[in-house]
Design a binder for these strands. Structure first.
Lengths: 235, 235
DNA sequence: ATGACTAAGTGTACAAAATACACTAAGATT
DNA sequence: AATCTTAGTGTATTTTGTACACTTAGTCAT
């Protein structure tokens, strides 16, 4: 039957998966959810993702799904790649999981992947009732994930780094208010290098993308830093 | 009925569309095909694209479809974005065309877009029997295309320019052998600027991405230029 | 064969950007 | 008042980018 259909157009399931990177002044993490099948399989970890609905566009879908699964909202998600290997769902556990939650478990699943970057403290995810739990996993210690999600995470990470190296600025991917030290730390974490404080700031000044706020850092036991926001421009 | 399905998972058609840019030492063009419906509509232009088959991955699909529609082969196609607005097929002519050639004309169509850049002389497209004809259209004079293909072309062009500006090198998107002047011309066409010959070459030298061949340009009525290829590395 | 034509190929001086580097300032805590 | 902690700032050097003009190798016409 697979053979008979091989040269026919597919009517695949289409899903979105979200790679949400979080940083906490120390490490870069990824948001994962625990999947429990109705069968006997041990729970496994995977990216938050689900099928696209009939009347929503892809961006809306990503936003909705992330919210439904983790209660995270107000996060800018950037589409970065579609993954569509015919056998990207290729083990029993994954198939069982699809059977548990999806309509056409036998059709292939093409997924459109999004990534984002958030400050962990500002976004405390909670698992949806049906989604096991939600965890922040260190990017350097990611276990085997369901589907092809390890591949998706790796490509997202590569894209994130490119974004930082070339555009040189974290742009949409940050909370509203931040200090320059936080911003620098973030670049260091993402790029995996040490940066010079003065040079980093010099570059920021010229790039003209930051605006100082009338507000200072609070709750620290030392000289409070100036808070900044991005100058509007991008969506 | 659309309402009833609004919050159901969609089983969309999934297609790929190819934005093939061509350059001819003068202008940047895009490869378009003419679509004829079985109805009374005038033919319209669109990107070469079609539905993904059951057992092929997205890259394979793009390669196959481009070949089927235009007989172009051996071209590196780079996936750059999925387009999935629910109403991206939103006029009668497009719907009629889908009805003519597709299985599930009423389902939405999510498309995965690819782009490429080729030297026009090296690739002479011929229309498939069922595909009206194939034309190279100047990018500065693109008429209204079917579906959301104008949007797709614009985003592809933006991506192409980014690629040239940041990576600074045309990489996979070129024929095997070329002269430095050709390469420079290409950069000038894509970026829409004039470049200095000596500076351009100096940069190339440092970037270390080119290898001189044992071969010189032929068929010109002046001093023949050295031919180069890219040093392997990328796929 | 000579001269004229055409694009190839090459170097240097100047400007701009990136890097390396260390001390003073402001607030909090005792 | 003294101490602790992170914020905040400038200059000298190196690297990279830019502006600019002449000589060379081949073809074509006489």
């Amino acid at each position: 039957m697979a053979d008979k259909n091989a040269s026919r157009p597919s009517n695949p399931n289409v899903s979105v998966d979200c790679v949400v990177f979080g940083f906490d002044d120390e490490q870069l993490k990824v948001l994962l959810i625990e999947q429990r099948t109705s069968g006997d399989f041990a729970p496994q970890l995977a990216l938050p993702g689900d099928l696209v609905l009939q009347d929503e566009n892809l961006d809306e879908s990503a936003t909705r799904i992330l919210k439904e699964l983790t209660h995270l909202e107000g996060i800018y998600l950037k589409q970065f790649k579609a993954f569509g290997d015919p056998d990207r769902v290729n083990n029993l556990k994954d198939q069982e999981w699809l059977r548990t939650v999806r309509e056409n478990p036998d059709a292939r699943v093409i997924t459109v992947a999004y990534y984002s970057l958030v400050k962990m403290e500002a976004y405390r995810p909670e698992a949806a009732s049906f989604a096991g739990k939600v965890i922040w996993q260190n990017v350097s210690e990611i276990p085997e994930l369901g589907f092809d999600h390890n591949k998706i995470v790796n490509e997202a990470l590569a894209r994130l780094r490119e974004e930082f190296e070339f555009k040189n600025i974290a742009f949409e991917l940050l909370p509203k208010k931040f200090t320059l030290t936080m911003l620098q730390k973030l670049h260091e974490i993402v790029l995996g290098v040490q940066l010079d404080k003065r040079n980093f700031r010099k570059k920021l000044k010229k790039s003209d993308t930051l605006q100082p706020l009338d507000e200072k850092q609070s709750g620290v036991d030392h000289k409070p830093a100036q808070l900044f926001k991005y100058t509007s421009g991008r969506k």
